[in-house]
Amino acid sequence: MNQTPVNLLEIRNLKKTFSIGGEGLFSRPLTLTALEDINFTIRKDETLGIVGESGSGKSTLGRCILQLLSPDQGQVLWLGQDLTKLPAEEMRKRRQDLQIIFQDPLASLNPRMTVGEIIADPLRTLRPELSKEQRRERVLKTMAAVGLLPEMINRYPHEFSGGQAQRIGIARALVTEPKLIVCDEPVSALDVSIQAQILNLLAELKDAFGLTLIFISHNLSVVRHVSDRILVLYLGRIVELATGDEIYMDPKHPYTRALLTAVPIPDPRLARQRTIDGLKGEIPSPINPTSGCTFRTRCRFAQPQCAETRPVLETLDGGRLVACHRWREIEAAEPIGASA
């Protein structure tokens, strides 16, 4: 692609907090900061991978983009229009363009509805002008596109395996011909061989329908496989955003570097050779975030300055982003290639 990429979606200064507890009379609610200072763009036709461990806010981010959760602050600009300011009824209509695929395929399907009803549901509400026959025709076409047989239309979700159920979920997301689909851990609940089928299906559908995908996963190998660019989140903040190759060959942030060495490699010789950059401890609680850099508690390069000021998200050549005070020093001290 040589033309200048169109920014389909732009996220500006997004912040989302949750208050937990405080329902009772005497307990003061605690504030959990799920996302803060989120700034990035999604280009038309790309697949943007979002990786992070538990508590990184990756699913919250996906839901804030789709306005399934309303962010505390910031803007979600869809082709220049701020979705957070849109009245509910207009947002509801806008959902034709923005869809989602869920992690647990069976839980995301209404057990009392048939496959046909489930897939037709978005059309019923978003395209009321379609006749019953037109609706059915579209449902059948979409089912064919995701590899479901027409005779499955009257069956119920519980009669399907996880992989097939996920195909139903994909068909539901696809039936309104959206421009963007948020895939929230779409393969984590599936068996390995089925995972690969679904990943291939998503790639083919993306090409066939001209989709832009946001692919959220905790599995860096899967994200790297499907994504053009990868956004790495840690405790609700962006630590790095770069192309898949850059992330893999030339990670700048110490967290990305550590994450890469921790990813299991299905290759015994490589796995034995490499040294794991053992991150100390576990992800701290997002309820009382640390001062300065959120990653410093586990970072072996941390210095006093990391505790004092929060690193800003720096834009490097080619539009990649990184948020670390010391990435230049770290790169000089331990060039990549020595490990991995």
Binding site: R95, N110, P122, T125
Partner: peptide
């Protein structure tokens, strides 16, 4: 809080 309800909202149900 089940995903299929969220799915219904996400697909534009009133």
């Amino acid at each position: 809080n089940r995903e299929f309800v969220e799915a219904a909202i996400a697909t534009g149900s009133k």
